[in-house]
Write a protein that binds this DNA or RNA. Structure first.
Lengths: 341, 341
DNA sequence: TTGTAGGCGTTATCAA
DNA sequence: TTGATAACGCCTACAA
């Protein structure tokens, strides 16, 4: 219980074990290159001194921080909870730490370059498709491309590694589900337009509508912001438009929840009077009243795969000229917020 | 648009500006100690070379990482979303980065010490009251106490800085609200017992019951785990117990949501047949059906204050022998899940 | 198998 | 006001 006077260094361990610092370093990184006996002595010394490696020194020497940066436009959205968890988990398994950043300040690109170029992080996990592609390419270090994986929200650039979901297809399936139930008057709450995934969902919606021979009515489209309040706003927009659609495809679950809640205030019941399908399958979806029909996003898989891909790239196991493009599939989860007309 | 061959160092900038590296360093940290003219020359050189500081080298030299570690038992819980956001925001404002860790692996303490002692983080924001106090004290560096702030979940140790909420009082107010509505048969879904906040809420519940002259019935107590599934389980427990209470105080909102959902499946309607009050006021609470009455936790304030306190401690503006103890107050938010009997 | 020595990029100290 | 120098703790040639 003697408090350490000072954080022990590799030198202290070396002295303690009567070996050189080099040997200690070797024991720690490649134990097989050291005799059994000295190895044991070093391990003992490590225990005795309570030595832990100094990451700053190690990073400086190795030019690698064994840290990745997860950047999202709004990490405060509960949607990211599962993802953050998966990212941390996967990173930890491979010996990496995770720094998190949210969009802060004016220049959306500056903080990223700061992190990357200052040796704080070895790679970037980007959940924001709205960033300037060129500047991203510009983030270079040592003349080699910055390890970067676009996750969830795609970046329309084939050269950038990405782990995304089949947004367009999923949207089409959502609409087909409604069509199969007999709906012909279908509205759509659109997500924030700066997200590429939003656009993909919108395109899927439009395509499916056309394929079903249905018309997209302008007044049944509403630009939301992915939070519940904008679902409420969408409801008010629809209410004001005079005639309600019989079904609504919401760009995400939260807006769907806001929509259902607000409509009910005016006596419009889901699913009795209107069907609503969401997107994501957030945790509350199945506990809501009515339990929400939605397109389930494999959030955990996104986090895990994006992280492991990024680390693969950092560690050079992925050839630079063969971009990774993982497209995960979303599942239709039918619950009670949609019903036949 | 010429891609840099190599990350420029302070030496490169120095050469570029025809000054010494020391001068460049000075310009960057205390510009007033350098002549206007050289200062300008250095700034220009920084721009030209695209120099960014190497954090690893800086950390090594300064023995400070300008990084804090946020550790929570289950960062995957959406409850933390707002908090993470606030922490990042506050930290960024003071020039700090944020590392996140979740409980991973066997030894809950080991990873923390690893982070701290290895110079990766300068301080710890701990959202987990179940950690061994003594080992926490043992986390020392240079013989001075590890900068540590216990946030949200308190640690029963007066020497540890903390930013928490008035759990016991809040629970009492929740119960009094129910009592004021005429309820006398009140159940409680308890959170995971390893959390101190859980215990505080339970004590508050018990005290308020006693003060109101009500008895706590064993079969109306249910140990949950803070997720919606355990709310469902609580419902089934109550259903099986034969007689339902007329009101339930849930240790958090998510369990309340699961409870309400599950009871409705058996035709027990909230608030018609049973009143439910939650704790936290998570984002969905007001959009749920019925909108949830709950004790609002100032989550953003917790994140912000805990972070700024921690950084104060790191930077030595807080005397070590005067622990910070912030207790934030929770607000009763009356919505529609509770009603007079 | 082990040790010596040099350098990663930065900043603080001391001189000039 | 500015510059030279040393040191932070680690790893890796290279030498023994």
């Amino acid at each position: 219980m003697v408090p350490a006077r000072k954080t022990p260094t590799i030198q202290d361990v070396a002295r303690h074990a009567s070996v050189s610092a080099a040997t200690v370093s070797r024991v720690l990184s490649s134990p097989e290159r050291v005799t059994e006996t000295t190895r044991e002595r070093v391990y003992a010394a490590v225990r005795d001194t309570g030595y832990t490696i100094n990451q700053a020194a190690r990073s400086l020497r190795l030019k690698a921080a064994r840290t990745i940066l997860m950047a999202a436009p709004n990490i405060g959205n509960p949607f990211y909870s599962t993802i953050v968890d998966a990212v941390i988990r996967e990173a930890a398994e491979r010996g990496y730490s995770v720094l998190v950043a949210s969009r802060i300040g004016d220049d959306p690109n500056r903080w990223l370059s700061d992190y990357m170029l200052s040796n704080r992080a070895d790679g970037l996990l980007l959940f924001d498709g709205s960033l300037d592609t060129n500047r991203l390419h510009g983030l270079r270090d040592d003349g080699v491309a910055l390890p970067l994986v676009a996750a969830y929200d795609e970046i329309p650039d084939a050269k950038i590694h990405s782990v995304i979901t089949d947004n367009r297809l999923a949207a089409k399936r959502a609409i087909r589900h409604l069509v199969d139930l007999g709906h012909t008057e279908i509205g759509h709450i659109i997500g924030p337009s700066r997200n590429q995934s939003t656009n993909e969902r919108f395109i899927g919606f439009a395509e499916a509508m056309q394929e079903a021979g249905l018309v997209v009515r302008e007044e049944w489209l509403f630009p939301g912001t992915y939070n519940m309040e904008s679902g409420t706003a969408a409801a008010e927009h629809l209410l004001a438009s005079g005639k309600l659609p019989t079904a609504v495809f919401s760009g995400n679950d939260e807006m769907a929840l806001g929509l259902i809640h607000r409509l009910r205030l005016d006596g419009i019941d889901c699913p009795r009077d209107i069907s609503v399908i969401g997107f994501d399958d957030i945790a509350v979806a199945r506990f809501f009243d009515p339990p929400l029909t939605t397109m389930r996003q494999p959030r955990e898989d996104i986090g895990r795969m994006a992280t492991s891909s990024l680390i693969d790239i950092i560690e050079g196991v992925v050839p630079e000229d063969e971009p990774i493009h993982v497209i995960l599939t979303s599942d239709l989860v039918v619950r009670e917020s949609t019903r036949a007309i």
